[in-house]
Design a protein around this nucleic acid. Structure first.
Lengths: 196, 196
DNA sequence: TATTATACTGAATATAAATTCAATGAACTA
DNA sequence: TAGTTCATTGAATTTATATTCAGTATAATA
């Protein structure tokens, strides 16, 4: 194997394994020795590739920023379609490529206190809530999304996605919800309260 | 002040302040010195009251187990009423008595890896998802709750609550959702797809 | 009031985990 | 092939933090 190949392979190994560990155990709870052990390499080698545990984590958050931005680029005709597509895409990804949604969980983790402030700010720099609130406003105008503070609705939607993603990581045996269940948080249902 | 009073007051101080810190920063990220400093007492005194950081955390989780059980005791006539009442209660509590919902967040934290295994098991011993799935089954029978795997629906509901609670702790400025938005995840809406 | 118990402190110790480093061997380069 | 670079290791070092401890002050008790 050539040097270049070897290096790239190691970097990928390290990135993906540490993502997995950071997401399941958290930043502080994950020891560099855990990562090294999980990869079957020495701790020293980790420091050959990353100058510090923090730098490794920062690289991951930067990856997360990128993939979050990609979420915002999803094309859609109707607001509700955006949320349905996004949710489906995330839930599907959760099955096939674990890293897509691990990323999602990581980003939320990184926004909390207890994370080195610089990295935290980086993670806070992308924010779906505000972005989606704008789309929700359109949906309210064309009558497909229920009334209410768009920020609060957006918040409710994303928190739910977040909650599902995180919990799914902990208990992967419980089946994921259908995307429509979650988007029902936003959807305007034509009233027929008389039934009640 | 009498010795007894003094002791009780200190214990309360320690419990509530450490709950606050553990919830916002996580178990490992919270140093015992952080807690001591936040209370304006010496580190030594903390160890006078609790034999270890772990024991302190365990006490909190035990409190959490109690309050979770209290949630399960809520009286209701109709399944949807249970979920609406529960959600409203939680969201209201989130305003007045922060500890109620801090507890909620703590319990989820405690269920993750990275927490001493014994404590983790304690936190896992109460589980709203299974409990609520049963209620959902009733709701499906009487036609008020949408069709689908009751476990998955219950999971979706509780994960959403979880997500909202956690995020609200981080960004308390964003208004909390209306309880009905969240319960719409479960509610059976009479179809009128022709509109679409 | 004298004695005892205990709330409390700050510094000392132990420990675990991040980081550094000197040494080894395998791939490149001339 | 000889020399250079770099991936790799394992042990040494540093640092951060939990825990312990010897001593002080304040409330209870006789």
């Amino acid at each position: 194997m050539t040097r270049k190949e070897q290096k790239e392979m190691r970097q990928k190994q390290i990135i993906f394994k540490s993502l997995e560990l950071f997401v399941s155990k958290g930043f502080s709870e994950t020891k560099v020795s855990d990562i090294a052990e999980a990869l079957g390499i020495s701790v020293g080698l980790l420091f050959h590739y990353y100058e510090s545990k923090e730098a490794l984590y920062k690289d991951l958050v930067e990856m997360g920023v990128q993939s979050t931005k990609r979420l915002e680029a999803i094309k859609f005709n109707d607001p509700m379609e955006y949320f349905l597509k996004t949710t489906e895409e995330l839930f599907n990804a959760a099955e096939g490529q674990p890293w897509v949604f691990q990323m999602f969980v990581l980003m939320s983790q990184a926004r909390r206190c207890g994370i080195p402030e610089k990295i935290r700010q980086l993670a806070l720099s992308v924010d779906q809530v505000e972005f989606s609130a704008e789309i929700i406003r359109h949906g309210q105008e064309n009558g497909t999304i229920k009334d209410g503070d768009p920020m609060a609705l957006s918040f409710a939607f994303w928190c739910s996605i977040q909650g599902v993603m995180e919990q799914h990581f902990i208990t992967p045996d419980i089946p994921l919800p259908k995307a429509e269940w979650i988007t029902d948080i936003l959807k305007k249902h034509n009233r027929r309260d008389d039934l009640k």
